[in-house]
Design a protein around this nucleic acid. Structure first.
Length: 437
RNA sequence: GCGGCCAUAGCUCAGUUGGUUAGAGCACUUGAUUGUGAUUCAAGGGGUCGCGGGUUCGAGUCCCGUUGGCCGCCCCA
Protein backbone atom coordinates (compact mmCIF):
# COMPACT_ATOMS: atom_id res chain seq x y z
CA UNK A 1 0.00 0.00 0.00
CA UNK A 2 2.83 2.28 -0.88
CA UNK A 3 2.57 5.68 -2.50
CA UNK A 4 0.03 8.33 -1.74
CA UNK A 5 -3.37 8.55 -0.20
CA UNK A 6 -6.03 11.11 -0.95
CA UNK A 7 -6.55 13.67 1.80
CA UNK A 8 -9.00 12.86 4.61
CA UNK A 9 -12.60 13.58 3.74
CA UNK A 10 -11.89 13.82 0.01
CA UNK A 11 -13.35 11.27 -2.38
CA UNK A 12 -12.09 9.71 -5.57
CA UNK A 13 -14.76 8.84 -8.08
CA UNK A 14 -14.00 5.64 -9.95
CA UNK A 15 -16.21 5.19 -13.03
CA UNK A 16 -18.96 3.42 -11.13
CA UNK A 17 -18.94 6.05 -8.36
CA UNK A 18 -18.83 8.77 -10.95
CA UNK A 19 -21.90 7.42 -12.72
CA UNK A 20 -23.81 7.40 -9.42
CA UNK A 21 -22.82 11.00 -8.78
CA UNK A 22 -23.73 11.93 -12.33
CA UNK A 23 -27.17 10.39 -11.87
CA UNK A 24 -27.72 12.71 -8.92
CA UNK A 25 -26.41 15.77 -10.76
CA UNK A 26 -28.52 14.99 -13.81
CA UNK A 27 -31.64 14.67 -11.68
CA UNK A 28 -31.03 18.00 -9.99
CA UNK A 29 -30.30 19.76 -13.26
CA UNK A 30 -33.40 18.34 -14.91
CA UNK A 31 -35.61 19.53 -12.05
CA UNK A 32 -34.09 23.00 -11.99
CA UNK A 33 -34.47 23.38 -15.74
CA UNK A 34 -38.10 22.32 -15.51
CA UNK A 35 -38.65 25.08 -12.95
CA UNK A 36 -37.05 27.67 -15.17
CA UNK A 37 -33.89 28.19 -13.11
CA UNK A 38 -30.74 29.23 -14.93
CA UNK A 39 -27.42 27.54 -14.23
CA UNK A 40 -24.28 29.47 -13.27
CA UNK A 41 -20.84 28.67 -11.84
CA UNK A 42 -18.22 30.60 -9.92
CA UNK A 43 -14.65 30.44 -8.57
CA UNK A 44 -13.60 27.68 -6.21
CA UNK A 45 -11.17 30.04 -4.46
CA UNK A 46 -12.46 33.28 -2.93
CA UNK A 47 -11.24 36.10 -0.70
CA UNK A 48 -11.43 34.92 2.91
CA UNK A 49 -13.25 38.12 3.81
CA UNK A 50 -16.28 37.10 1.74
CA UNK A 51 -16.99 34.45 4.36
CA UNK A 52 -15.91 36.27 7.50
CA UNK A 53 -18.10 39.21 6.52
CA UNK A 54 -21.09 36.94 6.21
CA UNK A 55 -20.52 34.60 9.13
CA UNK A 56 -18.01 36.20 11.50
CA UNK A 57 -14.32 35.53 12.13
CA UNK A 58 -15.02 32.28 13.99
CA UNK A 59 -15.90 30.66 10.69
CA UNK A 60 -12.24 30.59 9.68
CA UNK A 61 -11.61 27.55 11.85
CA UNK A 62 -13.79 25.55 9.53
CA UNK A 63 -12.41 26.84 6.24
CA UNK A 64 -9.67 25.61 3.93
CA UNK A 65 -8.05 29.03 4.08
CA UNK A 66 -4.47 30.15 3.45
CA UNK A 67 -2.33 33.04 2.26
CA UNK A 68 -1.55 32.92 -1.44
CA UNK A 69 1.73 33.94 -3.11
CA UNK A 70 0.42 37.46 -3.57
CA UNK A 71 -0.18 37.74 0.19
CA UNK A 72 -3.94 37.52 -0.25
CA UNK A 73 -6.01 35.86 2.44
CA UNK A 74 -8.05 33.31 0.52
CA UNK A 75 -10.30 30.31 1.15
CA UNK A 76 -11.72 27.43 -0.81
CA UNK A 77 -15.45 28.04 -0.94
CA UNK A 78 -17.41 26.42 1.92
CA UNK A 79 -20.77 27.40 0.41
CA UNK A 80 -22.23 29.22 -2.58
CA UNK A 81 -24.49 31.80 -0.97
CA UNK A 82 -22.04 34.72 -0.53
CA UNK A 83 -20.67 34.19 -4.03
CA UNK A 84 -24.05 34.16 -5.70
CA UNK A 85 -25.05 37.22 -3.69
CA UNK A 86 -21.99 39.01 -5.05
CA UNK A 87 -22.71 37.92 -8.62
CA UNK A 88 -26.34 38.95 -8.46
CA UNK A 89 -25.58 42.08 -6.47
CA UNK A 90 -23.00 43.29 -8.99
CA UNK A 91 -25.51 43.15 -11.84
CA UNK A 92 -28.71 43.54 -9.88
CA UNK A 93 -29.82 46.53 -11.94
CA UNK A 94 -29.58 44.64 -15.23
CA UNK A 95 -31.17 41.33 -14.26
CA UNK A 96 -34.81 40.58 -14.96
CA UNK A 97 -36.79 39.78 -11.81
CA UNK A 98 -37.40 37.37 -10.37
CA UNK A 99 -33.84 36.10 -10.63
CA UNK A 100 -33.96 32.29 -10.47
CA UNK A 101 -30.52 30.70 -10.52
CA UNK A 102 -29.01 27.35 -9.65
CA UNK A 103 -25.60 25.72 -9.53
CA UNK A 104 -24.05 22.33 -8.91
CA UNK A 105 -20.62 22.69 -7.39
CA UNK A 106 -18.03 21.26 -5.01
CA UNK A 107 -17.45 22.81 -1.59
CA UNK A 108 -14.78 22.43 1.07
CA UNK A 109 -14.99 22.58 4.84
CA UNK A 110 -12.19 21.85 7.26
CA UNK A 111 -14.16 19.63 9.61
CA UNK A 112 -13.90 16.12 10.94
CA UNK A 113 -15.57 13.75 8.49
CA UNK A 114 -18.44 11.59 9.69
CA UNK A 115 -21.49 9.89 8.27
CA UNK A 116 -23.03 12.12 5.64
CA UNK A 117 -20.38 14.78 6.08
CA UNK A 118 -17.06 15.04 4.26
CA UNK A 119 -14.47 17.73 3.73
CA UNK A 120 -15.25 17.98 0.04
CA UNK A 121 -18.81 17.52 -1.12
CA UNK A 122 -21.16 18.67 -3.82
CA UNK A 123 -24.23 20.79 -3.43
CA UNK A 124 -27.09 21.83 -5.59
CA UNK A 125 -27.91 25.47 -4.78
CA UNK A 126 -31.08 27.21 -5.92
CA UNK A 127 -31.91 30.82 -5.11
CA UNK A 128 -34.54 33.38 -5.99
CA UNK A 129 -33.61 37.06 -5.75
CA UNK A 130 -35.87 40.05 -6.05
CA UNK A 131 -39.11 38.56 -4.76
CA UNK A 132 -40.05 39.55 -1.23
CA UNK A 133 -43.35 37.70 -1.10
CA UNK A 134 -44.01 34.07 -0.12
CA UNK A 135 -44.44 33.15 -3.79
CA UNK A 136 -40.68 32.65 -3.86
CA UNK A 137 -40.88 30.18 -0.98
CA UNK A 138 -43.59 28.21 -2.76
CA UNK A 139 -41.45 27.95 -5.88
CA UNK A 140 -38.35 26.86 -3.98
CA UNK A 141 -40.07 24.35 -1.73
CA UNK A 142 -41.71 22.81 -4.79
CA UNK A 143 -38.32 22.65 -6.51
CA UNK A 144 -36.75 21.08 -3.45
CA UNK A 145 -39.42 18.38 -3.39
CA UNK A 146 -38.96 17.76 -7.12
CA UNK A 147 -35.18 17.56 -6.72
CA UNK A 148 -35.65 14.60 -4.37
CA UNK A 149 -38.88 13.18 -5.78
CA UNK A 150 -37.33 13.10 -9.25
CA UNK A 151 -35.18 10.17 -8.13
CA UNK A 152 -38.23 8.13 -7.15
CA UNK A 153 -38.27 9.17 -3.49
CA UNK A 154 -41.81 9.58 -2.16
CA UNK A 155 -43.61 11.20 0.76
CA UNK A 156 -42.81 8.03 2.69
CA UNK A 157 -39.10 8.61 2.16
CA UNK A 158 -38.63 12.29 2.97
CA UNK A 159 -40.42 15.44 4.06
CA UNK A 160 -39.79 19.15 4.40
CA UNK A 161 -40.08 20.85 7.77
CA UNK A 162 -41.19 24.46 7.51
CA UNK A 163 -40.63 27.10 10.16
CA UNK A 164 -40.33 30.85 10.42
CA UNK A 165 -37.80 32.98 12.24
CA UNK A 166 -40.03 36.04 11.86
CA UNK A 167 -42.84 34.45 13.82
CA UNK A 168 -40.35 33.50 16.52
CA UNK A 169 -39.15 37.10 16.74
CA UNK A 170 -42.70 38.48 16.83
CA UNK A 171 -43.85 35.94 19.40
CA UNK A 172 -40.85 36.35 21.70
CA UNK A 173 -41.21 40.13 21.44
CA UNK A 174 -44.81 39.76 22.53
CA UNK A 175 -43.60 37.68 25.48
CA UNK A 176 -41.30 40.54 26.46
CA UNK A 177 -37.88 39.29 25.32
CA UNK A 178 -35.38 41.79 23.94
CA UNK A 179 -33.40 41.06 20.80
CA UNK A 180 -30.34 39.53 22.47
CA UNK A 181 -32.53 37.30 24.60
CA UNK A 182 -34.48 36.30 21.53
CA UNK A 183 -31.30 35.13 19.80
CA UNK A 184 -30.40 33.15 22.89
CA UNK A 185 -33.81 31.49 22.92
CA UNK A 186 -33.56 30.64 19.20
CA UNK A 187 -30.18 29.06 19.78
CA UNK A 188 -31.75 26.91 22.50
CA UNK A 189 -34.69 26.02 20.27
CA UNK A 190 -32.26 24.93 17.56
CA UNK A 191 -30.69 22.41 19.96
CA UNK A 192 -33.75 21.41 21.89
CA UNK A 193 -34.60 18.41 19.72
CA UNK A 194 -31.17 16.94 20.31
CA UNK A 195 -30.35 18.00 23.85
CA UNK A 196 -33.68 18.41 25.57
CA UNK A 197 -33.77 20.74 28.54
CA UNK A 198 -29.98 21.21 28.59
CA UNK A 199 -30.40 23.33 25.47
CA UNK A 200 -31.43 26.24 27.69
CA UNK A 201 -28.27 26.18 29.81
CA UNK A 202 -26.47 28.60 27.52
CA UNK A 203 -29.37 31.03 27.67
CA UNK A 204 -29.52 30.96 31.45
CA UNK A 205 -25.78 31.59 31.71
CA UNK A 206 -25.96 34.60 29.38
CA UNK A 207 -29.30 36.15 30.32
CA UNK A 208 -30.23 34.81 33.74
CA UNK A 209 -33.01 32.50 34.78
CA UNK A 210 -35.90 31.89 32.43
CA UNK A 211 -39.27 32.28 34.14
CA UNK A 212 -41.26 29.05 34.20
CA UNK A 213 -44.33 30.48 32.51
CA UNK A 214 -42.26 31.95 29.68
CA UNK A 215 -40.28 28.78 29.25
CA UNK A 216 -43.51 26.79 29.05
CA UNK A 217 -44.73 29.11 26.30
CA UNK A 218 -41.48 28.76 24.37
CA UNK A 219 -41.64 24.98 24.65
CA UNK A 220 -45.27 24.92 23.57
CA UNK A 221 -44.42 27.12 20.58
CA UNK A 222 -41.51 25.02 19.41
CA UNK A 223 -43.72 21.95 19.53
CA UNK A 224 -46.31 23.45 17.20
CA UNK A 225 -46.89 21.13 14.27
CA UNK A 226 -49.80 22.66 12.34
CA UNK A 227 -51.20 25.90 11.00
CA UNK A 228 -54.38 25.76 13.15
CA UNK A 229 -52.25 25.43 16.31
CA UNK A 230 -50.16 28.34 15.12
CA UNK A 231 -53.23 30.47 14.50
CA UNK A 232 -54.75 29.51 17.83
CA UNK A 233 -51.61 30.56 19.67
CA UNK A 234 -50.94 33.78 17.80
CA UNK A 235 -54.28 35.28 16.79
CA UNK A 236 -55.22 36.24 20.38
CA UNK A 237 -52.12 38.44 20.56
CA UNK A 238 -53.86 40.84 18.18
CA UNK A 239 -50.60 42.01 16.55
CA UNK A 240 -50.83 43.39 13.00
CA UNK A 241 -47.41 42.02 12.10
CA UNK A 242 -48.43 38.59 13.25
CA UNK A 243 -51.74 38.69 11.42
CA UNK A 244 -49.99 39.66 8.19
CA UNK A 245 -47.46 36.93 8.72
CA UNK A 246 -50.12 34.31 9.19
CA UNK A 247 -51.50 35.37 5.81
CA UNK A 248 -48.08 34.58 4.31
CA UNK A 249 -48.17 31.18 5.98
CA UNK A 250 -51.56 30.41 4.49
CA UNK A 251 -50.22 31.41 1.07
CA UNK A 252 -47.21 29.14 1.30
CA UNK A 253 -49.07 26.13 2.62
CA UNK A 254 -52.01 26.73 0.27
CA UNK A 255 -49.72 27.08 -2.74
CA UNK A 256 -47.77 23.94 -1.97
CA UNK A 257 -51.01 22.04 -1.31
CA UNK A 258 -52.46 23.22 -4.64
CA UNK A 259 -49.42 21.65 -6.32
CA UNK A 260 -50.39 18.37 -4.71
CA UNK A 261 -47.37 18.42 -2.40
CA UNK A 262 -49.07 18.88 0.97
CA UNK A 263 -47.98 15.42 2.11
CA UNK A 264 -44.37 16.46 1.83
CA UNK A 265 -44.69 19.44 4.17
CA UNK A 266 -44.68 19.50 7.95
CA UNK A 267 -45.17 22.66 9.95
CA UNK A 268 -42.51 22.51 12.64
CA UNK A 269 -41.54 25.56 14.65
CA UNK A 270 -38.71 23.55 16.20
CA UNK A 271 -36.61 24.31 13.12
CA UNK A 272 -34.78 27.64 13.31
CA UNK A 273 -31.45 26.80 11.61
CA UNK A 274 -28.06 27.48 13.08
CA UNK A 275 -26.44 30.64 11.85
CA UNK A 276 -28.48 33.72 12.21
CA UNK A 277 -28.56 35.28 8.75
CA UNK A 278 -31.94 33.80 7.92
CA UNK A 279 -34.68 36.40 8.15
CA UNK A 280 -38.00 34.63 7.57
CA UNK A 281 -39.21 31.23 6.47
CA UNK A 282 -36.68 28.45 6.99
CA UNK A 283 -37.02 24.84 5.88
CA UNK A 284 -35.12 21.60 6.03
CA UNK A 285 -35.61 18.26 4.28
CA UNK A 286 -35.14 15.03 6.22
CA UNK A 287 -35.54 11.35 5.53
CA UNK A 288 -38.63 9.92 7.21
CA UNK A 289 -36.72 7.27 9.08
CA UNK A 290 -34.62 10.01 10.60
CA UNK A 291 -31.30 8.19 10.67
CA UNK A 292 -29.52 10.51 8.30
CA UNK A 293 -28.32 14.06 8.53
CA UNK A 294 -30.44 16.75 6.89
CA UNK A 295 -30.85 16.24 3.16
CA UNK A 296 -31.29 19.89 2.38
CA UNK A 297 -31.74 23.20 4.10
CA UNK A 298 -32.66 26.72 3.19
CA UNK A 299 -34.61 29.83 3.91
CA UNK A 300 -34.98 33.53 3.37
CA UNK A 301 -32.00 35.84 3.77
CA UNK A 302 -33.18 39.30 2.84
CA UNK A 303 -30.26 41.22 4.37
CA UNK A 304 -27.28 39.39 2.96
CA UNK A 305 -26.87 41.03 -0.44
CA UNK A 306 -26.91 44.43 1.21
CA UNK A 307 -24.55 43.31 3.96
CA UNK A 308 -22.02 42.32 1.30
CA UNK A 309 -22.16 45.86 -0.10
CA UNK A 310 -24.76 45.70 -2.82
CA UNK A 311 -28.38 46.65 -3.35
CA UNK A 312 -31.12 45.82 -0.87
CA UNK A 313 -32.33 42.66 -2.57
CA UNK A 314 -34.65 40.09 -0.98
CA UNK A 315 -33.55 36.48 -1.41
CA UNK A 316 -34.53 32.89 -0.62
CA UNK A 317 -32.45 29.84 -1.30
CA UNK A 318 -31.67 26.28 -0.39
CA UNK A 319 -28.95 23.70 -0.90
CA UNK A 320 -29.05 19.91 -1.23
CA UNK A 321 -25.93 17.86 -0.60
CA UNK A 322 -24.82 14.90 -2.66
CA UNK A 323 -23.52 12.85 0.26
CA UNK A 324 -26.74 12.41 2.22
CA UNK A 325 -28.83 12.21 -0.95
CA UNK A 326 -26.59 9.41 -2.20
CA UNK A 327 -26.90 7.54 1.10
CA UNK A 328 -30.69 7.79 1.02
CA UNK A 329 -30.94 6.64 -2.60
CA UNK A 330 -28.70 3.71 -1.73
CA UNK A 331 -30.85 2.80 1.28
CA UNK A 332 -33.99 2.86 -0.83
CA UNK A 333 -32.51 0.89 -3.71
CA UNK A 334 -32.88 3.83 -6.08
CA UNK A 335 -29.31 3.81 -7.35
CA UNK A 336 -29.36 2.82 -11.02
CA UNK A 337 -27.28 -0.14 -12.18
CA UNK A 338 -23.96 0.88 -13.65
CA UNK A 339 -23.93 0.79 -17.43
CA UNK A 340 -20.46 1.32 -18.76
CA UNK A 341 -20.61 -0.80 -21.88
CA UNK A 342 -20.95 0.11 -25.53
CA UNK A 343 -23.95 -0.25 -27.81
CA UNK A 344 -21.97 -2.14 -30.40
CA UNK A 345 -18.93 -4.38 -30.33
CA UNK A 346 -17.16 -4.82 -33.66
CA UNK A 347 -15.68 -8.23 -34.41
CA UNK A 348 -12.77 -7.94 -36.83
CA UNK A 349 -11.31 -10.78 -38.91
CA UNK A 350 -7.79 -9.47 -39.45
CA UNK A 351 -5.65 -6.55 -40.64
CA UNK A 352 -7.41 -6.14 -44.00
CA UNK A 353 -10.87 -6.28 -42.43
CA UNK A 354 -9.77 -3.85 -39.73
CA UNK A 355 -9.42 -1.04 -42.27
CA UNK A 356 -12.94 -1.56 -43.57
CA UNK A 357 -14.24 -1.77 -40.02
CA UNK A 358 -12.46 1.45 -39.02
CA UNK A 359 -14.20 3.35 -41.81
CA UNK A 360 -17.62 2.23 -40.58
CA UNK A 361 -16.78 2.56 -36.87
CA UNK A 362 -15.97 6.20 -37.43
CA UNK A 363 -19.33 6.77 -39.18
CA UNK A 364 -21.25 5.06 -36.34
CA UNK A 365 -19.39 6.97 -33.64
CA UNK A 366 -19.91 10.28 -35.39
CA UNK A 367 -23.64 9.61 -35.04
CA UNK A 368 -23.24 9.13 -31.30
CA UNK A 369 -23.40 5.34 -31.10
CA UNK A 370 -21.05 3.85 -28.53
CA UNK A 371 -18.79 1.51 -30.43
CA UNK A 372 -15.93 -0.67 -29.17
CA UNK A 373 -13.54 -3.00 -30.99
CA UNK A 374 -10.49 -5.05 -29.99
CA UNK A 375 -7.15 -3.24 -30.31
CA UNK A 376 -5.33 -6.42 -31.25
CA UNK A 377 -6.22 -9.26 -33.61
CA UNK A 378 -7.99 -11.96 -31.63
CA UNK A 379 -9.61 -15.30 -32.39
CA UNK A 380 -13.31 -14.96 -33.20
CA UNK A 381 -14.24 -16.93 -30.12
CA UNK A 382 -12.39 -14.46 -27.93
CA UNK A 383 -14.01 -11.54 -29.66
CA UNK A 384 -17.50 -12.88 -29.12
CA UNK A 385 -16.69 -13.50 -25.51
CA UNK A 386 -15.39 -9.95 -25.16
CA UNK A 387 -18.48 -8.65 -26.97
CA UNK A 388 -20.74 -10.47 -24.58
CA UNK A 389 -18.84 -9.30 -21.49
CA UNK A 390 -18.79 -5.72 -22.71
CA UNK A 391 -22.56 -5.49 -22.34
CA UNK A 392 -23.02 -4.49 -25.98
CA UNK A 393 -26.39 -5.24 -27.52
CA UNK A 394 -25.08 -5.76 -31.04
CA UNK A 395 -22.00 -7.22 -32.63
CA UNK A 396 -20.96 -6.18 -36.12
CA UNK A 397 -18.87 -8.83 -37.82
CA UNK A 398 -16.25 -7.73 -40.32
CA UNK A 399 -14.89 -11.01 -41.68
CA UNK A 400 -13.26 -11.86 -44.99
CA UNK A 401 -16.36 -13.72 -46.23
CA UNK A 402 -18.67 -10.83 -45.49
CA UNK A 403 -16.50 -8.12 -46.97
CA UNK A 404 -16.03 -10.15 -50.16
CA UNK A 405 -19.81 -9.99 -50.54
CA UNK A 406 -19.98 -6.30 -49.61
CA UNK A 407 -21.99 -7.03 -46.49
CA UNK A 408 -21.60 -6.88 -42.72
CA UNK A 409 -23.11 -9.42 -40.37
CA UNK A 410 -25.18 -7.97 -37.52
CA UNK A 411 -25.56 -10.24 -34.53
CA UNK A 412 -28.06 -9.49 -31.80
CA UNK A 413 -26.16 -10.49 -28.68
CA UNK A 414 -29.32 -10.88 -26.63
CA UNK A 415 -31.28 -13.35 -28.79
CA UNK A 416 -28.26 -14.52 -30.85
CA UNK A 417 -29.98 -13.90 -34.17
CA UNK A 418 -27.82 -12.91 -37.12
CA UNK A 419 -28.36 -11.39 -40.52
CA UNK A 420 -26.30 -9.80 -43.26
CA UNK A 421 -26.79 -6.23 -44.42
CA UNK A 422 -25.07 -4.26 -47.18
CA UNK A 423 -22.18 -2.20 -45.78
CA UNK A 424 -23.78 1.01 -46.97
CA UNK A 425 -26.75 0.34 -44.69
CA UNK A 426 -24.85 -0.50 -41.52
CA UNK A 427 -25.59 2.79 -39.81
CA UNK A 428 -29.34 2.70 -40.51
CA UNK A 429 -29.60 -0.97 -39.55
CA UNK A 430 -27.63 -0.52 -36.34
CA UNK A 431 -29.70 2.46 -35.32
CA UNK A 432 -32.98 0.68 -35.90
CA UNK A 433 -31.76 -2.47 -34.11
CA UNK A 434 -30.82 -0.33 -31.11
CA UNK A 435 -34.06 1.62 -31.25
CA UNK A 436 -32.16 4.86 -31.70
CA UNK A 437 -33.01 7.58 -34.25
C1' G B 1 -10.44 20.25 18.93
C1' C B 2 -12.18 15.45 22.00
C1' G B 3 -13.59 10.07 22.58
C1' G B 4 -14.63 4.66 20.93
C1' C B 5 -13.71 0.77 17.32
C1' C B 6 -10.78 -0.79 13.16
C1' A B 7 -6.37 -1.49 9.40
C1' U B 8 -3.43 -8.70 5.84
C1' A B 9 -3.69 -8.95 -2.46
C1' G B 10 -8.09 -4.64 -6.55
C1' C B 11 -12.60 -6.75 -3.27
C1' U B 12 -14.43 -10.11 0.90
C1' C B 13 -11.67 -12.45 4.42
C1' A B 14 -8.48 -16.74 6.90
C1' G B 15 -3.78 -16.79 9.36
C1' U B 16 -3.00 -21.66 15.89
C1' U B 17 -0.16 -19.93 23.07
C1' G B 18 4.81 -15.26 18.78
C1' G B 19 7.95 -20.08 14.99
C1' U B 20 10.36 -22.01 8.13
C1' U B 21 9.20 -19.06 1.91
C1' A B 22 1.85 -15.15 4.45
C1' G B 23 -3.05 -18.15 2.15
C1' A B 24 -8.36 -18.83 -0.03
C1' G B 25 -12.56 -17.23 -2.95
C1' C B 26 -13.89 -13.50 -6.34
C1' A B 27 -11.65 -10.12 -9.87
C1' C B 28 -7.55 -9.40 -13.49
C1' U B 29 -3.88 -11.38 -17.51
C1' U B 30 -2.57 -15.56 -20.63
C1' G B 31 -3.38 -20.42 -22.81
C1' A B 32 -6.56 -24.76 -24.20
C1' U B 33 -9.53 -22.20 -28.98
C1' U B 34 -7.26 -19.10 -36.66
C1' G B 35 -15.47 -17.95 -37.83
C1' U B 36 -19.48 -17.54 -33.05
C1' G B 37 -20.12 -15.44 -26.40
C1' A B 38 -22.43 -16.85 -19.90
C1' U B 39 -19.61 -23.17 -18.62
C1' U B 40 -14.97 -25.80 -17.92
C1' C B 41 -9.66 -26.77 -17.38
C1' A B 42 -4.59 -24.96 -16.84
C1' A B 43 -0.97 -21.29 -15.91
C1' G B 44 0.36 -16.34 -14.32
C1' G B 45 0.78 -11.36 -12.22
C1' G B 46 -0.35 -8.85 -7.83
C1' G B 47 1.53 -8.14 -0.56
C1' U B 48 8.05 -4.37 2.32
C1' C B 49 0.71 -7.69 6.63
C1' G B 50 -1.08 1.10 6.63
C1' C B 51 3.66 3.58 8.34
C1' G B 52 7.63 4.20 12.26
C1' G B 53 9.79 2.46 16.60
C1' G B 54 10.14 -1.12 20.75
C1' U B 55 10.17 -6.14 23.29
C1' U B 56 12.15 -10.98 21.59
C1' C B 57 16.74 -15.86 19.25
C1' G B 58 12.34 -14.88 16.16
C1' A B 59 6.59 -10.18 15.26
C1' G B 60 1.08 -10.27 10.43
C1' U B 61 0.43 -11.83 15.81
C1' C B 62 2.61 -8.43 21.90
C1' C B 63 3.68 -2.91 23.40
C1' C B 64 4.16 2.49 22.12
C1' G B 65 3.63 6.22 18.55
C1' U B 66 1.71 7.86 13.95
C1' U B 67 -1.40 8.06 9.53
C1' G B 68 -5.94 6.71 7.53
C1' G B 69 -11.08 4.71 7.82
C1' C B 70 -15.83 4.07 10.36
C1' C B 71 -18.91 5.83 14.49
C1' G B 72 -20.07 9.56 18.13
C1' C B 73 -19.23 14.68 20.68
C1' C B 74 -18.39 20.07 19.40
C1' C B 75 -19.98 22.50 15.00
C1' C B 76 -23.09 22.22 10.90
C1' A B 77 -23.44 28.01 6.37
Amino acid sequence: MAGFQSLPGFREFYPEDFSRRQHIFNGWRKSANAFGFQEYDAPVLEPLELYTTKSGDEIEGQLFSFTDKGDRQVSLRPEMTPTVCRMVGAKAGALKRPIKWFSIAEFYRYERAQKGRLRAFNQFNADIFGEAGPEAEIELIALLIQCLGGFGLTKDDFYVRLSDRNLWFYYLEALGFDEAQTRGILSAVDRYEKMGDDAFKGYVEAHGALADDKKAKVLAFLKIKSLPELEATLTPLGSEKITARLTDWRKVLGGVAAMGLADFIAVDLGVVRGLAYYTGFVFEAFDRKGDLRALAGGGRYNDLVKKLGYADLPAVGFAIGDVTTGLLLEQRGLTPAYVGGPDIYVVIGGEAERRAAFADIQVLRAEGLRVEYPFKDLAFGKQFKAASESGAKLALIYGGDELAKGVVKIRNLTDRSEREVPRAEVLAEAQSALGKP
